[in-house]
Design a protein around this nucleic acid. Sequence first.
DNA 1: CTCCTATATAAGCAAATACTTATATAGAAT
DNA 2: ATTCTATATAAGTATTTGCTTATATAGGAG
Lengths: 102, 102
Amino acid sequence: MDIYLMEKQLKALADINRLTLLACLKNGEVCVCQFVDVLPISQPAVSQHLRKLREAGMITERKTGIWKHVQLADELSPVVQAVINGLDAVSVCRCGAGDVTC
Amino acid sequence: MDIYLMEKQLKALADINRLTLLACLKNGEVCVCQFVDVLPISQPAVSQHLRKLREAGMITERKTGIWKHVQLADELSPVVQAVINGLDAVSVCRCGAGDVTC
DNA sequence: CTCCTATATAAGCAAATACTTATATAGAAT
DNA sequence: ATTCTATATAAGTATTTGCTTATATAGGAG
C-alpha cells in the first residue's frame, strides 16, 4: 500500500473517540444519535469524527427520515481490520430495538 | 486489546517519517546515522521519532561504540504487523557493508 | 587531555488537530 | 406555516504534535 495512504488511514484511526465509534459498530449498524449519547463530546464533534471515518472509507451511511445510520464498510483494509479485531465491542442501544424509535 | 493502548500504538504509527523508519527496518537492522541521511528532517527530529517507536515497543536498540543500531522488535502486535506488511521495504545502506563503517 | 563524531535532551515555535458555541439544513409532526 | 428533532457546517480557540536550534552526553582518536 502507498505509504501516504497508509498514513492517512492511521491518522483516521489514531483517536480515542473514533476508535470508540468503530468499537460500537462491531456488532452492527448504529444510529448517529446513539453516538451522541455514548461519547463525552458534543454533537458537532461526533459529526466531525464520523466525517473523517467516512472520508477514510471505513464506514457507510444510510439516511432514514431525520436519522442517519452508520455501519462498517464492506471492504476494510487489513490494517483497519486488524484494529477492529483488536477492539472489544462496545454495546449501544440498537436502533429499532424495544423503546428505541430511531 | 485495551483501547487506550491501541490508540497509543496508532498514534506512534500515524506519521510519515515514522512509517518510513519502519519501512527501512523491514530488511533488518539499520544504524541510526543512516536514518539521518534518509529522512528530510534534522538529527534531533529523527532521535525523537525513534524514541516514540521505542516507547511504543516497536523497535529495539543496540549500542556499539558511538553508533546505535535499530531493529524491529521480536513481538509485534497484529496491528503493527499489518502496517509493516502493508509497507514497501525501503532499502538503505546496511551497516558494515562495503564502505559503510558503522 | 582535547577534539571529533554520533546521539539525546531542552526549549521554543509553527502547524495540525480536536474541541467548543453558534448557526444552518432538512425532515416530521402539529 | 410553525415548531421540534437530528445532523451538518462555520468559525474561533485550546491542545497536541512535529519541527527547529542550541546544548549536553558519551565514546573513540590523536
